[in-house]
Amino acid sequence: MIEVILIIVAPIIGGLIYGLERVVRARMQRRQGPPILQPFYDMLKLIDKQALIVNPYHSILGIMHFVTLWVVVAFVVLGQNLLYIIFLHLLSAIFLIIAGFSAKSIYSHIGANRELQAMIAYEPILIMTAVGFYMINGSFDISVIRNNTSEIAGLFLIFLAFLMIIPIKLKKSPFDATEAHQEIVGGVEIEYSGIFFEFLYMAKWLEYVFIYLLLMLFAGDSLILGAVLSVTVFLLVNLVDNSTARIKMKHLIKIVLGIGLSLSMINLIGLSYV
């Protein structure tokens, strides 16, 4: 029962995290910042806006992106197969990329292009993380991982690699070139408007929920450790966001694949010998 409620309110939780993050980020820049419910006010405002449909597929793919992500979050909450979830998550990103290419806007195309490149960077690490969990628990099932004790010590290097991809997924500096609102005005989001943009906006919130749920897996069955991890990572990501500039796609791939992949490789090799 509690899982069902969690799944239903997942976008709302994501929205709250997003709102909190905006407040924290504003405070870090010594600004007043918006109220915590600002994302929901934005949603209310977006309903009133005129929805321009560029082409039907474009809009449908945007909705599909949201729906798939929701399914991904639901599966994480229900404790399904981690590998399966990661590939489903890949599918949701693919929907977005196809949507980006289906519009004629050049910014949308560049955004989709960069999204693809970013996927090349973060997807191997996600899979490595799943493999790491498998090697320790002997199962890809999240319910099994959750019932075992915390493996963060054994997976420490993978954990570091996982930290590197959080800014990519949450579109944070230094790895926010996929969205890059000063260069390509939000990339794939640009052609969405009104009610269709709401789905993309909510998908962004779900992305938060997804990332923090995955993060909680490192804590295993200990809820306290999970909470500590989430708060620390939340602060860390925002602090890094506030102390770095956006780096280029070329550097992003080099850094994430170079450092992140080798870190997780070393961890996996280490695990197989222990």
């Binding site: 870090m28 820049q29 010594r30 600004r31 500096s173 230094p174 926010d176 890059a180 000063q182 966001d241 506030n242 102390s243 770095t244 500039a245 956006r246």
Partner: peptide
């Protein structure tokens, strides 16, 4: 310049 390089915190500062 900082803002366009994606460094909002420096911009605000």
């Amino acid at each position: 310049t900082c803002e366009n390089a994606g460094f909002e915190a420096m911009f605000m500062r």
